[in-house]
């Protein structure tokens, strides 16, 4: 934890009934980093974002955004962040521009600032020509882009994205990845939750593996993959799929040569790291 951290979480705990959704999570995200929170459904990813953005209470621990404690000064903490929730939460009966305008008003922006920023951001997400249309007329991918634009309206220093590409087609997903990278390049800290391995691997500077409310591993994607070895092969045997990992290609090829089964050598990926370090698959 340092003064340059945009997000600091210390021993955060939250239970719903008897279920421990977050069980002592601690992490720090430096300003400007793109941080991914990877885990299966129910791991506690959304709960973390909901707590940090003021939607959910927490039982114990501490969290700060840009040095502002979220429990002591929630309004100041909220001013620093934008949030894109997993589900669409736009006003379908209002136009794109009206949705942006209401958001700007909630964050105390002036009329001139709201108009200029709406025009600028709708152009960034390629929706400028639809500004006056009702949100109900947009496709799922367009709505997701509009939600990202709306979250950026007040120039937040931290952007929370909760499963930003869930349910979207592959081409739209890649388009949104490009947008997220662009946002980070402009200096915004991005905190992303996902259960898409390739999303975390492609986008993130660092990844945390979250499982059953606990962080099981936290590092760069490359370092996490290196922990299991850089190379892998899968063999389908009577006991099911068995994957073996190797530190270098030569060792892997030697193992394949010694086996009678048909196997394909491949590079290890973040999913291998997740499987090995948590003992579970990301679903």
């Amino acid at each position: 934890m340092s003064a340059g951290d945009a997000i600091v979480i210390e021993d955060l705990r939250k239970a719903y009934g008897g279920v421990q959704a977050l069980d002592g999570v601690s992490l720090a995200v430096p300003a400007g980093e793109l941080f991914a929170y990877l885990g299966p459904n129910g791991a506690g990813k959304s709960t973390t974002i909901r707590i940090l953005t003021g939607l959910t209470r927490f039982d114990s621990g501490r969290a700060a955004l840009g040095g502002v404690d979220i429990a002591r000064d929630p309004l100041a903490a909220k001013r620093q962040c934008g949030v894109v929730m997993q589900h669409v939460n736009l006003d379908g009966d209002l136009s794109l521009a009206e949705n942006m305008d209401i958001h700007g008003r909630l964050f105390g922006m002036s009329a001139a600032e709201r108009a200029a920023r709406t025009e600028e951001l709708l152009a960034v997400v390629d929706l400028a020509d639809r500004a006056k249309r009702l949100v109900n007329t947009l496709s799922g991918g367009m709505k997701r882009r509009l939600m990202i634009a709306r979250a950026l309206m007040h120039r937040p220093s931290i952007l929370f994205l909760d499963e930003p590409t869930v349910g979207l087609d592959a081409d739209i997903r890649r388009r949104i990845w490009g947008l997220i990278k662009q946002i980070q390049k402009q200096g915004t800290t991005v905190f992303l939750t996902t259960h898409y391995i390739e999303e975390a691997e492609f986008l993130a500077d660092r990844v945390a593996f979250l499982d059953s409310g606990k962080i099981r591993a936290l590092d760069t994607p490359q370092a996490l993959i290196a922990r299991v070895g850089g190379w892998a092969f899968d063999r389908l045997g009577p006991e099911g799929m068995v994957t073996r990992y190797f530190a270098d290609r030569e060792a892997a090829q030697a193992a394949i040569a010694a086996s009678e089964d048909a196997m394909t050598l491949r590079r290890a990926n973040l999913e291998d790291a997740f499987l090995t370090l948590t003992g579970k698959a990301v679903r």
Partner: peptide, 14 residues
Amino acid sequence: YFHIFEEFQAAPIS
């Protein structure tokens, strides 16, 4: 249904 209330909850308003 529309989860708009979350937009207000996440905004810096009392």
